[in-house]
Write a protein that binds this DNA or RNA. Structure first.
Ligand code: FES
Ligand code: FES
Lengths: 151, 151
DNA sequence: CCAATAAAGGACTAAATTATCTTTTTTTGT
DNA sequence: ACAAAAAAAGATAATTTAGTCCTTTATTGG
């Protein structure tokens, strides 16, 4: 459904929501290590996210990536749109055309309601809200977290 | 979500459910034209589907592809598993690990219920049943059908 | 038996995605 | 000023998926 890039982007931004702020920046290398994501690939990706105003960054020593207020009010949907575009999400499950109730494919009514619900959820909740949920629920952002729960 | 191959496979099999039987076989070329799918690619794919007992075929003049009784009792899930494998479907939306309620990722509760529902639907309905629905509802299998509705 | 037809099988090419490497620019602390 | 640190930028490589082409095998009708 999502590309690797989009998955990495969402995880990185949620990570930054939890562990960064304007004064506590995080280097690309640290993020890639903590999330177990290829470092050069992530660096490129963070560049793009910076360009789209989804993350903030500063150069030089003590530099790194972080989320400002505006970044925190973006949504997961914004990330998906920036990285993967809308097409894949709006397309028919069988690849026929733009998915719609008026010209449904045979599996449309099996999948469309769910796609709509997911999209609505991703559009309606901000990164900040997701971060709150993560703190409350203790959900997992990396394989390391996952492993820690099983040690 | 699904690869092109899996999408083509589902559409081809539903097509065969509607337009073929043991005596009325359909050539790969005809299927590819009607569904607007690359012909050599589809030919290869139908070979695989034959090997997995999802379609039947015969060689020579009057030969072609068709669905027998057993083929018609397969499910869309069977097609997906054969072509794409189960991994993508069972994996976490953020690519973290196998998706599960016990170690949810931050978006798990936004997407998992829907994935489960879709999977259940695809496992629970046979190709024959889908074909019945298509006849009843007049849903669309190809871009041509789609265009025809808009002429 | 033979020619035509269609699937089976295998080798190959193209495109997209994913990942890496190298150089440049900006910033910071000394 | 200067050296080190870090992101930005751009070029390149590897992998996967998608798509094509060519040869072989089986089947049918004449
Ligand atoms: S038209 Fe195919 S999923 Fe909506
Ligand atoms: S654990 Fe991520 S979607 Fe279920």
């Amino acid at each position: 459904m999502l590309s690797n890039a989009a998955q990495y982007a969402i995880r990185s931004i949620l990570y930054l929501a939890l562990y960064s702020n304007a004064t506590q920046r995080v280097r690309a290398k640290k993020i890639s290590q903590d999330l177990e994501v290829p470092q050069p690939f992530l660096a490129k990706l963070l560049q793009r996210l910076g360009g789209a105003d989804l993350v903030s960054s500063s150069k030089g020593p003590t530099g790194g990536f972080y989320l400002n207020k505006a970044n925190r009010n973006k949504t997961v949907w914004d990330i998906i749109v920036t990285v993967d575009g809308t097409e894949k999400f709006n397309q028919c499950f069988l690849g026929l055309h733009t998915c719609s109730d008026t010209n449904p494919c045979p599996v449309h009514f099996s999948v469309s309601p769910f796609k709509q619900a997911i999209k609505k959820d991703f559009k309606g909740k901000t990164i900040a809200q997701f971060a709150e949920e993560i703190k409350k629920r203790g959900t997992v952002l990396s394989l390391k977290d996952f492993d820690a729960l099983h040690e």
